[in-house]
C-alpha cells in the first residue's frame, strides 16, 4: 500500500495518541500512595494493612545496616540489602513512630535488592526491614537507641 498523505496523517495521529497515552500513564504507573498504609497507629496495625494474614517469616538473609545509637533521631541512615530471590518491595518501619511505615521501595527486576535512605525516629525503638518476595514476606529488625528524638524535626 503506497503511503499516501491520508495514511501518513492517520499513522501520525495513532503514533501521537500512543505516545500521549504512554506519557499519561507515567504518573498513574506510580505506586499510588495509600493513606491507610501511612495512618498513625501501632506497628501491628500497620503490618496488618501491609501483609495479608500477617504471614511474615523472620529471615537472616536480610541485612539491615543501621547505627546502634543514633545521636539525632531526625536523621538516621539505614541500608537494607537482601540475598532473597525475586524481591518485589522493601519497606522500612519504625516501631514507635506515630506513623510506623517510613517508606516502601517497589523494585523492578532490573534493580539490585539494596536500598539506602535516611529516616526519622521519635524515640528508641526497633527498626523493621520488611521484604516482599514472590514467595511471601520476610523481615529482620534491629534496635536503635535514640538520644535526641526526631520530633523536633
Amino acid at each position: 500500500m503506497p503511503l499516501t498523505r491520508r495514511h501518513f496523517i492517520r499513522k501520525l495521529a495513532v503514533a501521537t495518541l500512543a505516545l500521549a497515552a504512554s506519557a499519561l500513564r507515567m504518573p498513574t504507573a506510580l505506586a499510588f500512595w495509600k493513606a491507610e498504609e501511612f495512618a498513625p497507629g501501632t506497628l501491628d496495625a500497620t503490618l496488618a494493612k501491609l501483609v495479608p494474614q500477617q504471614a511474615i517469616t523472620n529471615s537472616d538473609q536480610i541485612t539491615l545496616t543501621i547505627p546502634q545509637i543514633a545521636e539525632n533521631g531526625a536523621v538516621v541512615p539505614v541500608s537494607v540489602s537482601t540475598t532473597l530471590a525475586e524481591v518485589k518491595s522493601i519497606s522500612l518501619l519504625v516501631e514507635k513512630n506515630p506513623v510506623p511505615l517510613a517508606i516502601r521501595f517497589e523494585l523492578s527486576p532490573d534493580v539490585e535488592a539494596t536500598v539506602s535512605a535516611r529516616i526519622k525516629m521519635a524515640e528508641t525503638a526497633n527498626v523493621i526491614a520488611l521484604v516482599e518476595t514472590a514467595n511471601g514476606y520476610f523481615r529482620t529488625k534491629a534496635q536503635v537507641k535514640v538520644t535526641i528524638g526526631g520530633c523536633g524535626g
Binding site: 504507573a29 505506586a31 538516621v76 522500612l92 511505615l101 517510613a102 516502601r104 517497589e106 529516616i119
Partner: peptide
C-alpha cells in the same frame, strides 16, 4: 523503582 513514603523520611 517506585517509592511511597510519608514524613518518616528525614
Amino acid at each position: 523503582i517506585n517509592c511511597v513514603m510519608a514524613a518518616g523520611i528525614s
